[in-house]
Amino acid sequence: MIIIWGWRAIRKVLGSGRFFCPQCGGDTDYKHLALRRWFTIFFIPIIPLKDLGTCVECSRCRTAFTERVLDVTTLEVFAHHQGLANRAVVAHLVSLSPPVDDTTVGEGLLALASAPGVRDGYDGEALSADVSFFADPGAVAAYLRPIAAEMTIEGREEFLRRMIVLVARLPHAGPSAGLAIEHVAAALAVSPAHLAGIRQHVQSGAPAAGGDL
């Protein structure tokens, strides 16, 4: 009688989801895998042997990564957070410039019209709701935190430039709005000297250097 025996790596799917694949350069599905070597008889796994560890596998290119790859947000989630951060700061600045009349709301909507991540159809009613929610500086800080670590320097500069322009255009903006800009810069890890340079750049009327990413 012939007995066919051997070893085989069997993988167990621990979970799945969507991630940013560094190899593909875009958002794809992934599988979180645990691998273990098994002793097989007639190709049937009988005895579990060595634990081969865990990995994250891209469903498109099949490249395996360590779990740290999941720390990077997907492009879609980054855009979602970017839109929220823009709305949060604009709404907070509007809340610091009472009364919130049509002109103030109009300036806020104008600032958000060119902001990335803000959905089409965002209107005055939506901004009024955001003003109520983001009047609290703690809420603004919480919604800035996710993008602070992932935004490029140029993106932070463009973000702050947009807010500085808004404060300059708000009819009732007081010193508290300027102070809020400093808090936003600190949350984005932009130094006071760097912020002063951006302010100077805006006041000189120079065009923006780049995008918001």
């Binding site: 989801g17 969507r18 991630f19 958002d27 999941l70 947000t73 997907t74 879609e76 989630v77 855009a79 979602h80 957070h81 929220l84 959905r119 939506a126 709701a129 955001d130 929610f133 983001f134 919480a142 919604y143 996710p146």
Partner: peptide, 18 residues
């Protein structure tokens, strides 16, 4: 909820207050 693909609160993703 217009949650983007891959939205997972366990990974620190934030809910839109709207």
């Amino acid at each position: 909820w217009a949650a983007p693909a891959g939205f997972d609160p366990r990974r620190g993703h934030l809910v839109d207050p709207a």
